[in-house]
Simulated scan of single mutants.
Amino acid sequence: MSITVIASGTQSATLTTEHDLATDTASHVYVLGVDTGAMALADILEVRVYTKMLSGGTERLAYSATFSHVQGEPQKYSPPIVANISIRVSLLQSAGTGRSYPWALLALS
């Protein structure tokens, strides 16, 4: 099995704004990785993954996870998510001080 980086970067979070990180329309099994090492007390971060089931269908939330405060294990990974039409990943920091989050959308093949 090989891993391909579809997109990566560092997102500076603006509180209460959902930041789109990447969108891909290939057919893959994807994993979103986010480094939450910058989080501090009172920070709340949500990572989200959206997919479509059918071409021309409606994009829906397929996975989300919320993290609060300082993280003892800061490297976060979504479960593998199969997407054959499209995938969009985002993050939303809803509380605390806006932080910068390194991230990568990976494809397994």
Score class of each variant (00 low, 15 high):
residue 1 M to C: 09
residue 1 M to T: 08
residue 2 S to E: 12
residue 2 S to F: 06
residue 5 V to N: 13
residue 6 I to W: 01
residue 6 I to F: 00
residue 7 A to D: 15
residue 9 G to K: 03
residue 9 G to Q: 07
residue 10 T to H: 07
residue 11 Q to M: 11
residue 12 S to F: 06
residue 12 S to A: 14
residue 12 S to T: 15
residue 12 S to R: 10
residue 13 A to H: 02
residue 13 A to T: 13
residue 14 T to S: 15
residue 14 T to I: 10
residue 15 L to W: 00
residue 16 T to Q: 15
residue 17 T to M: 12
residue 18 E to Q: 13
residue 21 L to I: 06
residue 22 A to F: 11
residue 22 A to K: 11
residue 24 D to L: 07
residue 24 D to K: 01
residue 24 D to T: 00
residue 26 A to E: 14
residue 27 S to D: 15
residue 30 Y to R: 09
residue 33 G to K: 14
residue 35 D to P: 00
residue 35 D to C: 07
residue 36 T to A: 15
residue 36 T to D: 10
residue 37 G to F: 00
residue 38 A to I: 02
residue 40 A to Y: 05
residue 41 L to F: 14
residue 41 L to P: 02
residue 43 D to E: 05
residue 43 D to L: 03
residue 43 D to Q: 05
residue 44 I to G: 10
residue 45 L to Q: 00
residue 46 E to M: 06
residue 47 V to M: 11
residue 48 R to D: 08
residue 49 V to K: 01
residue 50 Y to Q: 10
residue 51 T to P: 03
residue 52 K to I: 00
residue 53 M to R: 11
residue 55 S to E: 13
residue 58 T to K: 05
residue 58 T to E: 15
residue 59 E to V: 03
residue 59 E to Q: 13
residue 59 E to I: 04
residue 59 E to W: 02
residue 60 R to Q: 11
residue 61 L to N: 11
residue 61 L to R: 08
residue 61 L to C: 04
residue 62 A to H: 07
residue 62 A to C: 13
residue 63 Y to P: 00
residue 63 Y to A: 02
residue 66 T to F: 03
residue 67 F to Q: 03
residue 67 F to A: 04
residue 68 S to M: 11
residue 69 H to I: 03
residue 69 H to S: 07
residue 73 E to T: 09
residue 74 P to E: 01
residue 75 Q to I: 06
residue 76 K to W: 02
residue 76 K to F: 03
residue 76 K to V: 03
residue 77 Y to Q: 12
residue 78 S to K: 00
residue 79 P to D: 05
residue 79 P to Q: 06
residue 81 I to K: 06
residue 83 A to M: 02
residue 83 A to I: 01
residue 85 I to T: 04
residue 87 I to M: 07
residue 87 I to A: 09
residue 88 R to C: 08
residue 88 R to V: 05
residue 88 R to L: 14
residue 89 V to I: 14
residue 89 V to S: 05
residue 91 L to M: 10
residue 91 L to P: 04
residue 93 Q to N: 12
residue 94 S to Q: 12
residue 94 S to P: 08
residue 97 T to D: 15
residue 98 G to L: 12
residue 99 R to Y: 06
residue 100 S to A: 15
residue 100 S to Y: 04
residue 102 P to T: 03
residue 103 W to N: 04
residue 105 L to T: 01
residue 105 L to Q: 12
residue 105 L to H: 07
residue 105 L to D: 03
residue 106 L to F: 13
residue 106 L to C: 08
residue 107 A to R: 09
residue 107 A to Q: 05
residue 107 A to D: 05
residue 108 L to H: 08
residue 108 L to Q: 13
residue 109 S to W: 06
